[in-house]
């Protein structure tokens, strides 16, 4: 893991070939993305009143510190996707109802669409991008592959993150426990049977450990 001190301004995905980056590259030339100039980092919102205009905030995502300017109304999801290029968490219902935007804040699964970015400052935020170690898949991801636990795959990042949080708190779940525990995530393709099997398998592979 990199040092959390490492400051990255509006960092784009490391590979440079994400689908989002590609689309921006061909349609917009990506020019606007380099335009951010931070004045003073992290002046924002420790107390007092800020906004409604842009405010400098600091987010700690996947072990890296990011400084960015957002209006207080920007959700954590939009900040992750549109400012930091972390497009794993998906914007689907945008109303805290489908789970596609699930990320971990201080280890707990939350809906990033229903969290204000400014409110997530100073907290340890983990997204699907932070779950792999190099090219090594997380045990939950491996189990999703093994059990064909996705069809179109759009809900999958949210499910994988939610499943990790669920296993951390329920290290030996049954399929019924998984059904109840992951009730906050929806799959319109209906791959629930595979997902339940995958989560049970992942929990076994993790051997009751948090990972």
């Amino acid at each position: 893991m990199r040092s959390p001190k490492e400051s990255q301004v509006r960092k784009l995905p490391e590979s440079g070939v994400s689908r989002r980056g590609f689309l921006q590259g061909v349609s917009l030339g990506g020019g606007a993305l380099g335009a951010a100039v931070l004045e003073r980092p992290a002046e924002a919102a420790q107390s007092g009143v800020v906004g409604p205009g842009e405010v400098s905030i600091t987010l700690w995502v996947n072990g890296k510190e990011h400084e960015l300017r957002v209006e207080p109304r920007v959700t954590l999801l939009d900040a992750l996707r549109d400012r930091l290029g972390l497009t794993g968490a998906k914007r689907v219902c945008d109303r805290g109802t489908c789970g596609a935007c699930t990320v971990l804040v201080e280890g707990k699964a939350v809906y990033a669409c229903t969290t204000l970015a400014i409110d997530a400052q100073g907290k340890n935020i983990q997204t699907i991008e932070g779950m792999t170690r190099g090219s090594e898949l997380h045990p939950v991801m491996k189990a999703f592959v093994n059990n064909d636990a996705q069809q179109c795959g759009f809900c999958t990042p949210g499910f994988v993150v939610a499943a990790k949080a669920f296993i951390d708190e329920h290290p030996n779940p049954t399929e019924e426990d998984v059904m109840n525990g992951l009730g906050g995530n929806l799959c319109r393709c209906g791959t629930y049977i595979g997902i339940r099997k995958a989560v049970v398998e992942a929990a076994k592979a993790m051997g009751g450990r948090n990972a």
Partner: peptide, 11 residues
């Protein structure tokens, strides 16, 4: 959503 001021009081 409509823009708003944000406050983060400690007391």
């Amino acid at each position: 959503m409509q823009a708003f001021e944000y406050a983060n009081p400690k007391t």
